[in-house]
Design a protein around this nucleic acid. Structure first.
Lengths: 207, 207
DNA sequence: TAGTCAAGCAAGCACTTGCTTGGTAAGATC
DNA sequence: GATCTTACCAAGCAAGTGCTTGCTTGACTA
């Protein structure tokens, strides 16, 4: 209600067509959906919520996506691709394992906690179960590939003697410690992702 | 459908009143709700799902609970009380800090991953945001009290020299590593909570 | 100038949702 | 034996739910 006057009888300019800003309307939907999925969860978020957030009517998102699940799929795949890309960069650097490890931690946490990626990352981590089986398989495949980056650096750290155990269990503990930050991190609080990464490295590695 | 014959015209015994089994119908609802909340999430679980699971009609749970949220509140508070009680016991033992720590890890993981508590624990960890503000505050209060148990043992471990940093950050990493197990633990897999606890202790503590 | 197309809107359909209401059968209590 | 209480059920209401349909409009194109 009070949303749109059906036909503004006097208005001359027929809507300023707010150009520039952001090209793609579809990606606006994805961003809005990501934020809402993080804030309220997939099931509690309605198509109407998403449409409202980008100033559409409730039927219009279905021009861009064939279903609500399709939106979720897009957000989740977007999320893991973002994390992977962010971490692959420091992982490919030629720093010493320890410094490389810390840079990877920082990259992962920057996505999870930063304004850019935290919506899609949280959606990926907490709402993937609402995907259909096929999409879930795809997420798992990409996640396994991503964790391969970590397994590799853990192995090097063991070779270096900074780590005594580079088993899958160690990797899972590491993922847990990192991904759980979304549950307690406060954006107004003092600690930066960088500092958190450093502390985590210090906890896990011995010198 | 095919659920209950309205009035069995010939049946003599008017329903065997399946005694014994489990006293309280209300707690059956809580258990069923916990399982469903873990499997599908709070929002995706309907009152009809919960009622079906204990063979009631969809209006009947409202005799025991005043709203769907009230069920969630009960499950969540039940969850944290269960974890707290399970960990408080080893925490109060007079073992050496290191052994005590490992016993606490085991206790926490036994609740999270065991058949008894994993439903309510998962609900607590992942669905608390759907509580109203008041209930959320109560959960946070209890959670802070619970984490106090951990902060205390971390402090002792530092005194003992097994840990270099007993800050809140260390505790949060620890909670993350533990609570994230629910995301990957397989009940058919080889590792027991006990073994996982031991490995985690080995990763965090130095000898 | 007519035709095409991308990007939406208005309306609404079929269904689901949490929850309420009036009733009722079996015990417990007086 | 009359009343009260417990624990439900049958029915349904009002508000949503995902999604579809037919249409419009402004920008481009032949």
């Amino acid at each position: 209600m009070a949303r749109v006057v059906k036909k503004a009888p006097v208005s001359v300019s027929p809507e300023p067509t707010f150009q520039g800003e952001e090209t793609n309307r579809r990606s606006e939907l994805v961003r809005a959906a990501g934020r809402l999925f993080r804030e309220k969860g997939y099931s509690a978020t309605t198509i109407r919520d998403i449409a409202d957030a980008v100033n559409m009517r409730s039927g219009s998102p279905f021009y861009h996506f064939k279903s609500k699940q399709d939106i979720l799929r897009t957000v989740a795949l977007d999320g893991i691709a973002t994390i992977h890309a962010a971490v692959a960069k420091p992982a490919a650097s030629n720093k010493a394992p320890r410094a490389r490890f810390e840079a990877m931690l920082t990259a992962h946490l920057n996505v999870l906690l930063g304004d850019e990626g935290r919506d899609i990352a949280a959606t990926l981590l907490h709402e993937s179960r609402h995907l259909d089986a096929e999409a879930q398989d795809e997420v798992i495949r990409l996640k396994d590939a991503y964790e391969g980056l970590w397994q590799a650096v853990l192995k090097e750290l063991k070779t270096d003697g900074a780590l005594t155990d580079d088993s899958a269990l160690t990797r899972l503990f590491l993922m847990g410690a990192m991904n759980w930050t979304t549950q307690w991190y406060r954006h107004d609080g003092g600690r930066s992702p960088r500092q958190i990464a450093r502390q985590l490295a210090k906890l896990l590695l011995r010198d």
